[in-house]
Design a protein around this nucleic acid. Structure first.
Lengths: 248, 248
DNA sequence: AATAGACGTCTAGATAAGTAGACAAATCAG
DNA sequence: CTGATTTGTCTACTTATCTAGACGTCTATT
């Protein structure tokens, strides 16, 4: 295989190879539980020294995708590609495949006087402050998403108090009398994770995150909540649900 | 600013800095038409030599994001973040912001006996061959997406003949009697562009693509078309349209 | 138990990336 | 026009990455 040189890409050789191997693992070319090619074979395939291959594999070990067994080989660790459904009444906790032990943990909340411009306009704040809530989502013990939500304090009085008591955004919303809401807007983009995100999700720097920005509104159309969720792209794909529309 | 070292990330320093600067341009921290900080200032900010900054900026020049003017400075070139809407009856050509001169060019088509497993199952091919069509999408002269579509040849006889005549997938479908269809499934993921994609979209290698896989079906629910579209993530975000649901 | 094959570790040398600084060329303000 | 500022180019040097190969340790098979 002709391979790109680091000089052209700005990637070190070991990272280029690690990225290539990861994609082959994720797309199933190397099936879970099976043995990877030996380091020597991979060195031949990519035309590099075995030491470079070892550095690449070290990345995948760090990420938990493969395990090395001395004397035996390198094996693909069973992994799940999580499918996160975006639909009308979905919450962050709804994952398509069951059973997954998903938990959402609020890690901080704070009333901010001047939220970012996009938040203010999407929530029609017009100068009012917003309650900002940071959460992380874990599935089976692995952190897969990092979320920031903003609420109009005028619509959700004492939401932060209830949040501290219940330690759950959904329960806190119920406590302030909000039971039902629908997603009215979503935008999806992708970028390199920043340092905080990489740290919170235990990702190697340079990892890709899928960014979902969305607005949930009350049934009368009043915007209630603006959320920006960053999913780790190596483990999550977004499933856009059109089934609610099938009845038309 | 404390910055990540290349040793930890596998990125060369100039690429780390280029990525950072690009994200600040794309998110508006450096507004279009304005002057960037001088190379010396950037060198101070990132704690590197000016030569390294120059290499980073060369990447952005290559990508068309900034322009250098000797003696004057480096300036942010006006650019657009394209918003691509995913909804019930959207096609690749529908972009949210107008006016954009969008064109879809079929670049190759071929009948393949054994399409990938996911294609076969989503289209319920059960062993039948599929017509595979490769297209690129340009907006204002810039290629922003690379798409691969598969059709069940049993449902679309002579589609390839009409495609060669009309040079348009939509027109070719109309010619075989298919006027209306709806999107029944979509999944969104993100990854590093492979070499072919990077070449077709004129991207630096290592760029991120948003991958949208989707199935369009006839109104009776028969799956018609499986499509995988790779958008360049630096210029495109996906807008998920729930407005069809507002009437409920 | 012997052995081949695989991962683990180390040292030395070659190549590429980044630093350092000097000077040229273009631009702009006064 | 003058001078300060900014990008353009070059050479020498330092540091990090990659190659090369030897040798050790562990595992599975015969």
């Amino acid at each position: 295989m002709t391979f790109l040189t680091r000089s052209a890409t700005g990637y070190s050789t070991w990272r280029l190879i690690a990225d290539q191997l990861r994609s082959e693992i994720v797309d199933g070319s190397f099936a879970p539980e099976t043995k990877m090619p030996t380091e020597g074979e991979l060195a031949d395939r990519f035309g590099v020294h075995r030491n470079t291959i070892r550095q690449s594999i070290a990345v995948l070990v760090e990420e938990g995708l493969v395990a090395r067994r001395q004397g035996s080989g390198t094996f693909v660790v069973p992994h799940t590609l999580l499918v996160h459904r975006i639909g009308l009444r979905t919450r962050l906790s709804n994952s398509a495949r069951q059973p997954d032990a998903t938990s959402n943990r609020p890690i901080a909340s704070e009333i901010v006087a001047n939220p970012p411009q996009e938040v203010a306009s999407r929530l029609r704040l017009e100068g009012r402050p917003a309650l900002q809530i940071e959460t992380v989502a874990d599935v089976n013990g692995t952190t897969i998403a990092r979320s920031t939500a903003w609420f109009d304090v005028a619509l959700t009085p004492d939401l932060d108090v209830h949040l501290r008591q219940t330690r759950s955004v959904t329960k806190a919303l119920r406590a302030v009398g909000i039971d039902d809401y629908v997603r009215t807007w979503s935008a999806v983009s992708a970028r390199i994770a920043n340092r905080v995100e990489a740290e919170d999700m235990n990702l190697p720097s340079g990892s890709i995150v899928l960014v979902v920005r969305s607005v949930n509104s009350l049934l009368d159309g009043t915007p209630l909540q603006y959320t920006s969720t960053r999913f780790r792209a190596d483990r999550v794909e977004l499933d856009i649900d059109f089934s609610d529309l099938a009845g038309h």
